[in-house]
Computed example of a mutant assay.
Amino acid sequence: MGFWQPVTNLRDYVSHNPPGVTFFLCLLTVAVSFICLSAYSYTHTLPNPDTAEDWNHLLSSLSQFQLCVKANVSSPELVSPVPPSLGDGDPTVNSTETPSLGTLRVKVPLALNTNPNSVSLKDLGLHATFRARQLHLGDDEIVNVTLEFLSENETCTCLTITAPTHLLPMSLLPPECPVFEKHISPILTEAGDHPHAASQTCYSLHSTNDPTLTVMLTQEEQSVAVRHLLGVSVCLLGVCLILCVAASITHSLNRRYHSTGMEPQNVKEPLIDP
């Protein structure tokens, strides 16, 4: 009579079946990884992967460019600032000329770096025009950006952006930028991502990731994700358990047959003798 020896049987199976052991370890690794990921998702707040663009993405794209004063003018060209009535924190639609345009005037974590030829940053305003694809917002739509700085050591900037309403990231808006008492006339610049002439006055931007501007998953969405991960992990662990039991039983049967000199009953004798 044979006895079930699971430890010995599994040891024999591991030594004689490397492919099966490799498959078992892969399943076990995936199951443990899903359990760890579900634990991390349960204890941490995660960004929403369905939100392609938020304000951190927009500011990061904007900081990839240098703003240089146009070289074909004898003095910095000034443009009219955006009226304060357009910067009320909500997109304002002009129903007569450009019904699809919206304007936001917000305070964002965007700092300005300058080269040695640049002027003081105090009371400085810059205006630039982009294509939406340059900021990863769309295709060939026009996006007007105005930056206003009141202090040289200020890490936040007043950003006024005018673009088609459907391109503006409306989730988790930055705080509204206050109306400045002092009038600032922005300098017209051109945006580029290549080095310019050394004599040209250029400004580079540096953005700081703000967690409050990142769209996160809700508690309900995270709970659903955790349940799905745990469900898959339990299924994989169940498959691993079945493989272990099957391997131990198979080797127990083989050992019993070899010890008694018997063959399994389902093995038939050849019909024709050699």
Rank of each mutant, 00 (worst) to 15 (best):
Y40R: 10
E53S: 12
L58W: 03
T43A: 15
S61M: 10
A52T: 11
L58K: 01
P49K: 03
L37F: 07
E53H: 13
C68R: 05
N48F: 00
L37A: 15
V69Q: 13
N56I: 01
L37V: 04
S60M: 12
Y42T: 14
C36H: 09
A39M: 10
A52C: 07
F65I: 10
H44I: 01
T51V: 15
L62N: 02
L58A: 03
S41V: 07
S61I: 02
S60N: 13
S61W: 00
T51H: 07
W55I: 01
S63V: 06
P49T: 09
P47G: 01
Q64S: 14
Q64D: 12
L59G: 06
P47S: 03
L37M: 12
L62D: 00
F65W: 08
F65Y: 14
H44C: 13
T51M: 03
P49I: 05
S63R: 05
N48I: 02
Y40L: 14
E53R: 15
L46E: 06
L62E: 00
Y40V: 13
S63Y: 02
A39Y: 03
V69W: 00
F65T: 08
L62T: 05
L62I: 09
D54A: 09
N56V: 00
L46P: 06
L46G: 07
D54E: 09
N56R: 04
T45I: 14
S38N: 03
C36G: 09
T43I: 14
S38C: 08
